[in-house]
Design a protein around this nucleic acid. Structure first.
Lengths: 112, 112
DNA sequence: TCTTTATATCATAATACCTTAATATATTGA
DNA sequence: TCAATATATTAAGGTATTATGATATAAAGA
């Protein structure tokens, strides 16, 4: 007899988690997160620090904000961004620890 | 005077970490990882459990293998896959905890 | 050996993502 | 109000990723 298929609920959950990880799957976004882990920054500072264009940074910040990684507040003509959940720091540390043992593998990955 | 740009080294590092997270950024791949956290499985079992096609599962397994998430061993006509680093479990738990506080936000994210 | 089952690979088409450039909005100070 | 600066949004094109279907390889048993 066929095994019960996964509840739709589970599929939705998995998609949310996948989206969450997608947030950290782009070098520019990840770099922004790393920089913000060092403290609140405005957009211009992030543009300077990442070397990406202003458009890119604003767009990726919007993505990070949507996904709950960062929050922002206006201060004068600047918009200051900061990490909204300190646990993100732990996730990154853990990832780095794992990658340390697999860096060569991952770097060479050309499949996708 | 302009601030020093990031060392190329750092950019490479960030790209590796981004690639690492990319591994978990696809629903099928993430589901496979979740299932394998429950124990070693062969490809057919993963096809059954995920509802994805055999081609999809094999391809995503190849990706996960390249990136060091899983390893495999042949046993007769089956190929058994398992998680290669238990710390992946911790990353997932952490992500789920964070998402629990931001699920609605992330689900609605249509930007990318 | 032939057939069946299990898994992997490949080509192609569809989709999603990212970059770039242009433009819009909002704040500040003249 | 006008100009300058900071940030956000949008459209278009290029690139990367994914899904699909077809085919290849490899092991097991008849």
């Amino acid at each position: 007899m066929a095994q019960l298929k996964l509840q739709p609920e589970t599929a939705v959950q998995t998609e949310i988690y996948a989206k969450f990880f997608h947030g950290l799957s782009n070098p520019t976004r990840l770099r922004i997160v790393e920089i913000l882990l060092d403290g609140e920054k405005n957009v211009s500072q992030l543009v300077e620090a990442t070397g990406a264009t202003q458009s890119q940074v604003s767009n990726q910040l919007a993505c990070l904000k949507w996904c709950g990684y960062v929050t922002s507040r206006q201060e004068g003509k600047y918009v200051l961004y900061r990490i909204s959940d300190e646990r993100v720091r732990t996730i990154l540390q853990l990832a780095k620890a794992i990658v340390a043992d697999n860096a060569e593998h991952i770097r060479c990955c050309t499949r996708m």
